[in-house]
Design a protein around this nucleic acid. Structure first.
Lengths: 227, 227, 227, 227
DNA sequence: GATGAATGAGATTTCATTCAT
DNA sequence: AATGAATGAAATCTCATTCAT
């Protein structure tokens, strides 16, 4: 089959998988159901994705890809704005993405749980070999790099004052938005509240915090705690 | 069996479960292995913990308990310091806990994912009935409340200026540390670096950021992004 | 489970297997059907017999066992008769057994096809390791030995004159009856005729031939053919 | 494609099939492997032979053909010898053929098992329709008839005394050589010994036995056994 | 309460055979 | 006629959970 055609079919299968996984959750989703919904047999499904885990990985990859595309759009959209503005817009994007894509959000968080280095047993060899897993590792770095690039631009255009390594600042911001997405996963959705606190407000304080961090110089030695 | 003896055995089983879950991850861990390591049969294991989920819940509870104890110690230790100091010390504690207790950290985060509202599929009735689950629900808010209390104390003693709801500020801080723990999980350990960035530095910038948030007033409307 | 109980259950399963294999033939028989008929689940079936092939081996073993028992009965029954008489009765028994037990007869012939030495690929390691396969190899020799013993007895009591090695004479007789069983398998049953020849007559000429061989001395050099 | 070319290709495929079936046995042989060895795709393979069974039938036919040719040669060679001599030479030929062509020998025996009357399950309609199957039915009686003809010639030239139906005598001889081939299959090859008995000696006693049967009158009622 | 055996539900594999191009 | 992909049917395996003793 031409590569293109295979790609298409893969997409159709992942479409089906998304629906099934969304509805039943990973554990309760049946490969049988995925194959049926995709209009193929189980064996064909397995010829595309070698295991349930791998199918989930493919789906995760698609989520990452989607987020990445969002990043590119944001960057393009704000290319005439300041680096600060663009950086914050990326954070905003990430949080919206998490909100709007529950399944992807969970997949993404699971991915981060799974990849912990030196964890031979949690990831089967098969998964580590899987093309999607490898692709994801590339993308996952790319997301940081894109963000760091905007931070760098901000430093150059003077909108960002904090003189820490852009990669470091990106990681810090990433930490906050990942935390947001996790809390979101725990809370259900943007409108749900935890302790009467709206997720939308949480999002805003995170953005504000990020902004403060970026537009100020910081001294890390100030906060030594001896516990 | 006397209650005490049963308690002991439960602890031994959870010890075994910790090892097995740590090594293989929840999904790949086998009840068989847990029972073997605990030196009992599967049926006995089931007589103590009614399901794999429940065993994991017990383990999660133990993690919560440990973190909670840490919180109490920190609060006690810093009872003469400012509320700001104490609040930051709690964050510091949480991050250290995450670093030192990978399994508990994940369990705790999973717990929050699992209880998310409207998630009928993930939690069986059986689990909702389980003693550990109930115990945990009692405790899980406590962590926030303890943190919020220290923030409140900070506001009263003037060390904390930000006038947002203490619960909201706690949640925000929680978001950052959860993000930290998630990124940490992905990176492996404190000493490992992501993009040449040390996790210890990440911890410090998070603390510094939290401090800045607490000692300043904020205006959330300032950061509206239109994506 | 006590060994005895397990034995019992094995027998029940083989009972079921016999029915299913008889009805559908090896290839079309389903493990599912065997398990259902035995009143157990497929998994349990597999816990007793590790593969379809192995189950068939067990069934073959039972067939051999049955034939062996028949041999013992014949030997006992004719213990006061001459060794010649007893030897011929064993041949008769073998042929009747083949006639009356189609499934076993086929199994037995298949066994002989399969064991061909140096045939690594046809028999999986698993089968070679299987207890039934090993047991069968023992029995299959036993059948010869029992026959050879009767021939020996015949030589001692003077009813058998041929002075070739008893084992050799047994093998020769065995060759004829195996041929008979094969022809029988091809013809369907004793009453069916091939080229208008009744299997029952074939049986009689074989017995008569065997008798002639046993009561005469032979000179093998007489029949050198140069093709 | 020209008929001739097709014929050639068929032969090449059967060559490949012989190798694969020899190595793995019918059941474990894969059509995939046959097609690969033949340097064609599975579908092409199927366009030549409609099923695995049919391919095996083709191979069986080739074996029959080869044996038949051998028979013709023997008959021709011994046309000036007595019918007895010629008949025994045919048996000798058959046994040599079995020794030298394990695969064909088994195929041929399987063929006889498969066509057994009343065996609907084993032969599909498709096979019954297949050209090779039809060809074989034409030939398979021929082997007996050729043998019977030599026996008849022996009776006429006085070298054969036994006055049973020549077809019956042929079948009896066939029984012995089939038994020989089966025992041979089990033992490995002519040089291997079972119980220290050389297959070559077994062959000689069979020939001698056949000779005795042919040159003597027999009374089948003499050997009634009551088991 | 402890034990060995069994269950149930689904994942995964294997292959002969067929389809679409 | 040739090809790569797909089908269907069953074998086999895995494991949480339950049963019978």
């Amino acid at each position: 089959m031409k590569e293109e055609k295979r790609q298409n079919k893969e997409e159709l299968i992942i479409d089906a998988a998304e629906k099934v996984f969304s509805k039943y959750g990973y554990k309760n989703a049946k490969m049988e159901d995925v194959s049926k919904l995709a209009g193929i047999t189980k064996v064909t499904l397995y010829s595309y994705f070698q295991s349930k885990e791998n199918l989930y990985m493919a789906l995760t990859y698609r989520g990452f890809q989607k987020l990445l595309n969002g990043y590119y759009q944001i960057i393009d959209k704000h290319k005439s704005d300041t680096g600060l503005h663009s950086s914050l817009a990326l954070l905003d994007k990430f949080m919206d993405f998490s909100t709007e894509n529950f399944l992807y959000n969970e997949a993404l968080l699971n991915y981060f749980s799974a990849i912990r280095s030196g964890n031979e047993k949690k990831l089967t060899e098969a998964i580590k070999e899987s093309i999607y897993f490898k692709k994801m590792q590339d993308i996952h770095n790319l997301l940081f790099k894109l963000a760091a690039k905007e931070v760098l631009r901000g430093k150059e255009d003077g909108s960002i004052i904090n003189d820490f390594d852009p990669m470091f600042l990106s990681l810090h911001a990433w930490t906050m938005v990942v935390g947001y997405s996790k809390v979101l996963a725990a809370s259900g959705n943007e409108k749900t509240s935890i302790f009467h606190i709206k997720m939308s407000n949480l999002k805003r304080i995170i953005l504000q915090t990020a902004k403060i961090v970026l537009v100020n110089k910081m001294d890390l030695d100030e906060v030594l705690i001896e516990n």
